[in-house]
């Protein structure tokens, strides 16, 4: 455990995977290792892929690995799949699509289970990105769990977000709804041989046309990707997609927006860490001294209510007036 951070920096796959696991399992000492590698992060281009289950995110990721490897870049992949709400178990099957790269030392694929986290990622995803970044991967691709309309956590971690859609999933109103449709830096219409691909293209175009856009600002391209059953066409489309991904990164760099994305990410990370540090400590104490049970009784008997109880907890553990208690908000 002691030397994990150092080995990660040297590019050791097993140590990296172990460190990610220690973070997932919330092992004492794991945060210390992240502290060590943190100063060396921030070099990788983080690319997020999100979209509904079965849209083809893993297959696209696999093909994008090929593109980036051909350009001489090293690649890390974090593939998130859901945990069972009943048993906590999970089947992590994304890497089935990527196994042709298993023997390539320039590619590191790590599966993550959501472990109850909402938003499309797992709680450990942010730190797992840091680990792959510190290893020296040029590109870190993050494949979210199959999502619905509002799982947008990926925007807090990726520089470039790909929203992967397939034809036939709804009418034009779906395209102008808030949430996932707002977060794409690039839209991918996958399985474009299917009926409705043209219609979807028009809907996304119309949606983008409606949005306010400064002159010179990035307009999310829409990339049609043909079926994998037509390998040559498929490869050509994904080549085009990989160019667009790099163009977006270049755009962020050229317009000094990369810093904004990094700032957004830091803010989200600090938010989560503060919430963790305070909430976990307080909850642990409440459980340990039996206070939580007593609070539940009081709420059940209508002697008190959740808000009053929370205020009392905040007063007791954080001290001071309500104004100085951001945690109780």
């Amino acid at each position: 455990m002691v030397e994990l951070g150092k080995k990660v920096m040297a590019g050791d796959v097993r140590s990296a995977s172990r460190l990610i696991r220690n973070i997932e399992d919330n092992l004492p000492g794991a945060k210390q290792e992240i502290r060590k590698i943190f100063p060396y992060t921030g070099k990788a281009h983080v690319v997020g892929l999100t979209g509904p289950p079965g849209a083809g995110k893993s297959t696209l990721t696999d093909e994008l690995i090929r593109c980036f490897r051909r350009k001489g870049k090293t690649v890390g992949v974090l593939a998130v799949d859901p945990s069972s709400p009943f048993t906590g178990g999970a089947i992590l099957g994304d890497r089935i699509r990527m196994q042709r790269h298993a023997e390539d030392p320039g590619v590191f694929v790590r599966s993550l289970a959501t472990r109850g986290t909402m938003g499309g990622l797992s709680k450990a995803a942010g730190d797992a990105i840091h680990v792959m970044d510190a290893m020296g991967k040029d590109i870190v691709m993050v494949e979210t769990v199959g999502i619905g309309q509002q799982e947008v956590e990926i925007i807090h971690h990726a520089h470039t977000v790909l929203v992967v859609l397939v034809p036939g999933m709804g009418d034009e109103i779906q395209a102008i709804k808030a949430g996932v449709m707002e977060i794409g830096d690039i839209f991918v219409i996958n399985k474009a041989h299917r009926e409705g691909a043209g219609k979807l293209f028009k809907e996304i175009t119309a949606m983008l046309d409606m949005g306010p856009r400064e002159p010179g600002a990035w307009r999310p391209p829409i990339v049609m990707v043909e079926s994998v059953a037509e390998p040559h066409e498929f490869e050509r489309c994904v080549d085009e997609l990989s160019d667009k991904i790099e163009a977006h990164y270049q755009y962020l760099v050229n317009t000094n927006q990369l810093g904004d994305r990094q700032r957004r990410r830091s803010l989200a990370e600090i938010n989560a860490a503060v919430r963790d540090a305070i909430l976990e400590t307080v909850l642990r104490r409440l459980v340990a001294d039996g206070e939580l049970d007593r609070m539940v009784e009081k709420a059940l008997n209508k002697e008190s209510d959740p808000y009053t109880l929370a205020e009392q907890v905040a007063e007791r553990y954080l001290g001071g007036s309500k104004a100085s208690m951001p945690v109780a908000e």
């Binding site: 796959v13 089935i96 196994q99 694929v109």
Partner: peptide, 22 residues
Amino acid sequence: EVIYTGCHQTPEQCASAAIQED
């Protein structure tokens, strides 16, 4: 937590995936 890698794997792919997934 179960990682399933599908059919037709070489021994090298099995070993490398097991290490990558810890």
